[in-house]
Design a protein around this nucleic acid. Structure first.
Length: 352
DNA sequence: TACTCGTGGTC
DNA sequence: TGACCAAGAGT
């Protein structure tokens, strides 16, 4: 059994709290099992960390279960069809993650013999693995002393040391503080403990300082500034863009769908043919219909907000003969859940 | 550095 | 109800 830092130290206080309050997750090995020398499957930790990027635990749970059930090992995933992985990822967002997930799995098989490297720098070279994920996998899956710096840790450090420098400029300073705290003992538990603290107690709004294991040493709580931290540089307003999509259905029920280009928004995902999305509403961008047909403009519209713009889509629908040329997905193969959400909204509108 | 890249929940 | 937010990476 490994030592835990003394309870009078900051890491010791946090680990003691984590031993009692650790959240349970499908990919996680809890503190009791870790003390018995059990470490999690690096494949599952990697998978969960990719999914958790900018995504809530509640949303990830179901996707994680479906992925590891369908592809239990990195070799299974590396052998998967691209379209199957993209379809399974549909709805989770940030689709470059799914493209890189496949690239990474194949790189692990081709370049590392199907075994995830423990080394932080080797992990960093893999597609889709950046500074955070490299530190998370090496610490959580291999119990190596690397420091995770995610949104939780940034918030916790900013408050613990009452740092008022706005993000993202404050990142190097916050990282230095986080590294100085990272213990040599139980680094995997510690990484998860800081993030659990940020997610459950040191939350963005109304942090529960009264029950925080770090309430006494916390400089922001002492100064009463915890609700002002971390400071962030203001965001730019989102423009409104407009566009048109074309939903063509054959008489046998097949839908005309295209696989979007690898790069750019919704890259590699299925989508309806349509116009570009422009910052103008007059005239409405209609583009060119994918085929000649009796297009009916549906009542209503699709509204959707992406990270950096709002989108309003006009939906046009047409029935076409079974001998129509083009890229169709048969009724049997078509699953609305394979579509990214904005495209599924257009389909939903056509079914009302 | 700053921008691109999704989605659903929250208040 | 619109803005903010969530275990960031790539360019």
């Amino acid at each position: 059994m490994r030592d835990t830092p003394d309870i009078n130290t900051l890491p010791g206080l946090l680990l003691h709290w984590y031993d009692v309050h650790a959240r349970e997750m499908p990919w996680r090995v809890g503190p009791a099992q870790r003390k018995a020398g059990i470490l999690p499957d690096p494949y599952r930790i990697w998978m969960s960390e990719i999914m958790l990027q900018q995504t809530t635990v509640a949303t990830v749970r179901d996707y994680f279960q479906r992925f590891v059930t369908r592809w239990p090992t990195v070799r299974d995933l590396a052998a998967a069809q691209d379209a199957d992985v993209m379809g399974e990822w549909a709805g989770l967002g940030y689709y470059a993650r799914a493209r890189n997930l496949l690239k990474c799995a194949r790189a692990v098989v081709d370049e590392h013999g199907g075994v995830f490297p423990a080394d932080h720098d080797a992990l960093l070279k893999l597609p889709g693995i950046g500074p955070y994920t490299a530190a998370a996998v090496s610490s959580i899956a291999f119990d190596l002393p690397h420091t995770v710096l995610d949104g939780n840790v940034e918030r916790v450090m900013a408050r613990l040391y009452d740092i008022h420098t706005p993000l993202p400029a404050a990142k190097p300073l916050l990282m230095a503080q986080a590294q100085a705290l990272t213990p040599a003992q139980r680094p995997g538990d510690y990484a998860q403990a800081v993030m659990d603290l940020g997610a459950t107690i040191c939350s963005p709004k109304s942090p529960a300082c009264g029950i925080c294991p770090w309430r006494d040493p916390c400089a922001a709580r002492d100064a009463g500034t915890q609700n002002l931290l971390p400071k962030k540089t203001p965001k730019k307003p989102k423009p409104v863009r407009h566009g048109t999509v074309y939903l063509a259905q054959r008489d046998d029920g097949a839908w005309m769908l295209e696989t979007r280009p690898e790069k750019g928004l919704l890259g590699g995902m299925l989508g309806w043919p349509g116009s570009d999305w422009l910052d103008i509403s007059e005239p409405l961008p209609e583009g060119t219909p994918p085929l000649k047909a009796d297009w009916q403009t549906l009542a209503g519209e699709v509204r959707h907000t992406f990270t950096h713009f709002h989108l309003i889509l006009t939906v046009k629908l047409a029935k076409v003969p079974n001998d129509t040329a083009g890229s169709f997905v048969t009724r049997a193969q078509f699953r609305p859940s394979d579509l990214p959400t904005v495209m599924r909204k257009a389909y939903d509108l056509s079914q009302t």
